[in-house]
Design a protein around this nucleic acid. Structure first.
Length: 297
DNA sequence: CGGTACTACAC
RNA sequence: CUUGUGUAGUACCG
C-alpha cells in the first residue's frame, strides 16, 4: 500500500492525463477486456479522466487484465498481443512519457529501436560502416523477447533509473496484470511485458540497456554493435573473437533470463577468409548487408 | 506551435 | 475482428 504523501513529490497532473488521452486516442486502437470504445469514452470524458487521475495520484489505480489476441506474422508464426483497456493505455502513456524523459538521455548510442529521433536507417548505416573494418559479424535475435522479460529483473532495472514511487508501483502492476484469453479463460502473467502495452517498448529498452548495452560497454568496449529492440549486430575482427563473444553473450543473456534465437542467430563472415563455413552477408532491419554493397530486398 | 485524417517501413 | 513504440511521407484544420 502507498499513500498520497509518498507519491505527491512527483505529482501527476490532470494535464498529463489529458495529453496522454490525446496521444493514445490518435492511434484509434480498439478496446480491451471492458470493451470500452472511443465514442463512449468521449461522451464520458470528464468523469472518466478525472476518475483515472484521482486513482493514479492516490495510488489506488489497478489496471484491468489485458485482452489476448493472436495475430499472424508474415514469417508464418503467431504473435500474442496483450491489449490493455483504453484507460489503462492512457495511464501507461502518462508513466511512459515521464519515465522516458528520465532514462532516454542515458541510453546507449548504439541503441536505435523504439527511441525518439532514431530510426532503422541510422542503425543500418552504422552497421555498414562497421562492416568495412570488421571481417566478422554476429547477427543475433532473442527468442520471444517481450514475453520472456523477467519481472523481478525488470523492476530492478527500472528502480535503478527512476525512484518515483508511483512509476515503480504501476509498472509492477502492469507487468503482473492478468491475461484474458480469447476463449474467456483468465490466466496469470508470470513473465514478460504485454505486446500492446504503451510502456512495453520503453521497458524492453531499459531491460536490454542493462542486460546487453551496458554489459557490452564494460566487457567488450572495443566491439561495436547496433541494437534495434531485440535485433542486434555485433562486429568482430576475427573468427575466434566472434565465436568467443557470441558464447559470452549467450551466457550473459541467460543470466538475464533471455535465450538467443537458435535459428536467427548466426556468425557471418563479411570478407571471404572462411567463406566455406559462414554466410557472407546478413539481413538487418529489412536490408541485406554485404562487404561492398547494400541492397533493399 | 497545437490538433485531425490517411500511407509506408522497422521491431 | 488486430495492440504497441519509433521513424518518414501526404493532405487538412486552428
Amino acid at each position: 500500500m502507498i499513500d498520497y504523501y509518498e507519491i505527491k513529490s512527483q505529482p501527476i497532473t490532470r494535464v498529463m492525463v489529458f495529453q496522454a488521452y490525446k496521444k493514445v486516442r490518435a492511434n484509434k486502437g480498439s478496446g480491451g477486456v471492458d470493451n470500452m470504445d472511443w465514442e463512449w469514452l468521449e461522451n464520458n470524458l470528464k468523469t472518466e479522466l478525472y476518475k483515472l487521475w484521482n486513482r493514479l495520484t492516490s495510488g489506488s489505480y489497478f489496471p484491468m487484465p489485458v485482452k489476448e489476441v493472436a495475430i499472424k506474422k508474415k514469417g508464418g508464426g503467431e504473435r500474442k498481443l496483450g491489449i490493455p483497456t483504453l484507460l489503462d493505455r492512457i495511464a501507461q502513456q502518462v508513466a511512459k512519457t515521464h519515465l522516458e524523459r528520465m532514462v532516454e538521455p542515458q541510453f546507449h548510442n548504439s541503441s536505435f529501436g523504439y527511441r525518439p529521433s532514431r530510426n532503422c536507417h541510422q542503425a543500418v548505416d552504422q552497421a555498414c560502416k562497421n562492416t568495412f573494418n570488421h571481417d566478422f559479424a554476429i547477427d543475433l535475435d532473442i527468442k520471444g523477447f517481450f514475453d520472456s522479460i523477467d519481472h523481478e529483473l525488470m523492476m530492478k532495472a527500472v528502480r535503478f533509473y527512476c525512484q518515483d514511487k508511483w512509476v515503480l508501483l504501476y509498472v509492477e502492476r502492469w507487468l503482473k496484470a492478468g491475461i484474458v484469453q480469447q476463449d474467456g479463460n483468465h490466466i496469470d502473467r508470470l513473465t514478460g511485458t504485454p505486446q500492446g502495452g504503451v510502456i512495453s517498448p520503453l521497458l524492453a529498452n531499459i531491460f536490454m540497456y542493462v542486460s546487453f548495452d551496458k554489459w557490452m560497454e564494460t566487457n567488450h568496449p572495443e566491439k561495436p554493435f547496433e541494437r534495434y529492440a531485440d535485433d542486434v549486430v555485433v562486429h568482430c575482427k576475427t573468427e575466434k573473437q566472434a565465436i568467443y563473444v557470441l558464447k559470452q553473450i549467450g551466457v550473459r543473456l541467460r543470466k538475464c533470463q533471455l535465450t538467443l534465437h537458435p535459428e536467427k542467430t548466426q556468425i557471418v563472415n563479411v570478407r571471404g577468409k572462411a567463406e566455406k563455413k559462414y554466410p557472407k552477408g546478413y539481413d538487418f532491419l529489412g536490408f541485406t548487408i554485404r562487404p561492398q554493397w547494400q541492397s533493399h530486398w
